[in-house]
Design a binder for these strands. Structure first.
Length: 340
DNA sequence: GCGACAG
DNA sequence: ATCTTGTCGC
């Protein structure tokens, strides 16, 4: 199956990613003096209440572009919450000067809550994109021995992202070569939407690797694949976009429940969406070795069945918690980011 | 009050 | 992910 022109894929995907910063700013600027909204109100208007933590952290940025308005955003309980300059009293004073009465660090939301205008809800569109995403059917890891296993990770220096792909041989333990690409990210980290933050830099990286005729046979991606609220984690989406089989490797559990309550070294314990449907396996938890008590969360990206996925990941274990290709990509991307 | 969500 | 000091252990 011919691979797509990744230069073109990179450019067209970038077009489809909304500017959440601009949309949040637009919403915040509609709050008139004398009114407040909650972090959750803003997140829901962006399309997902799960974005409230990002909304709060962005508003509370000390030198952030919305620092002038952040006093008008409070917690859902009516508590004032934090303020960008650490001085909550100043938040109360600003609200009071605008006519919002504050008692015991609380605002009466019934009286002062502003109704935000209907927005474009960009996260609703992105959720729909994930749900409806049609994976190409032809992507399957070829039978026989794998030649090259790639490990992917991204590190950050501010809003600069450094993506690295470390290419390992069939044994999964010997580094052959690696590639790196640095670019500015323009989408925040929100749980469930990691792909929209990190896929752009990966696509730039793979466009270069394609130009050098150095694409691995299979990719281990730092993040989930099928183990995702909408079954469309970054590993799955990336595999579909670049046409290479992928496996998702996460260090923390995003969703689902582990069927077994006992993890033993080297055993693949199924993770299901709900214990009521134990046949719907989203991925596996595995302890790579006895030195760590935290498992790795491994799930199908695209084009590889469970057994082969387990075999490929297992042969990449060598004393670190992460498989060697990801471990190397993590260290190398971090090293480069620290020089920026 | 508790639980809590990849990077 | 990043911010961060010392500290425990192989």
């Amino acid at each position: 199956m011919p691979l797509p022109d990744l230069r073109h894929v990179a450019d067209s995907l970038q077009q489809r990613i909304p500017d959440l910063f601009a949309e949040l700013k637009r919403l915040v600027l509609t709050i008139p003096p004398g009114h407040v909204v909650t972090y959750g109100d803003l997140a829901k208007e962006l399309g997902d209440s799960g974005a409230s933590r990002w909304v709060a952290s962005y508003l509370l940025l000390p030198e952030g572009p919305l620092a002038d308005c952040s006093h008008r955003v409070v917690r859902s309980t009516g508590e004032l919450g934090l303020y960008h300059n650490q001085n909550v009293d100043q938040k109360a004073q600003k609200l009071a000067s605008e006519g919002v009465s504050v008692q015991n660090n609380q605002v009466d939301l019934k009286r002062f809550r502003w109704t935000l205008p209907a927005g474009s809800k960009p996260l609703v569109a992105l959720k729909a994109w994930q749900r409806d995403f049609a994976c190409p059917v032809g992507i399957e890891l070829a039978a026989g021995e794998v030649q090259t296993i790639g490990g992917l990770d991204v590190s950050y220096q501010g809003d600069m992202a450094v993506a690295v792909c470390s290419c390992f041989g069939a044994d999964g333990k010997e580094l052959q070569k690696h590639f790196a690409h640095t670019m500015r990210v323009r989408f925040p980290y929100i749980s469930g939407y990691l792909a929209f933050r990190e896929i752009p830099v990966y696509l730039e990286l793979f466009a270069e690797m394609q130009a050098n005729d150095c694409l691995p046979d299979v990719l281990l991606v730092d993040g989930n694949g099928r183990l995702h609220p909408r079954r469309m984690g970054i590993a799955t989406m990336l595999g579909a976009l670049i046409g290479i089989p992928t496996i998702g490797i996460a260090k923390n559990q995003l969703c689902g429940s582990i069927l077994s309550d006992q993890l033993t070294v080297g055993s693949w314990e199924p993770i299901v969406a709900s214990k009521n449907e134990p046949d719907d396996v989203l991925g596996y938890a595995i302890l790579p070795h006895a030195k760590t008590k935290n498992p790795l969360y491994v799930s199908q990206g695209l084009g590889i069945g469970d057994l082969r996925m387990q075999e490929i990941v297992a042969r990449c274990f060598a004393g670190h918690r992460s498989p060697e290709p990801i471990y190397h990509a993590d260290r190398e991307s971090r090293r480069i980011a620290s020089t920026l």
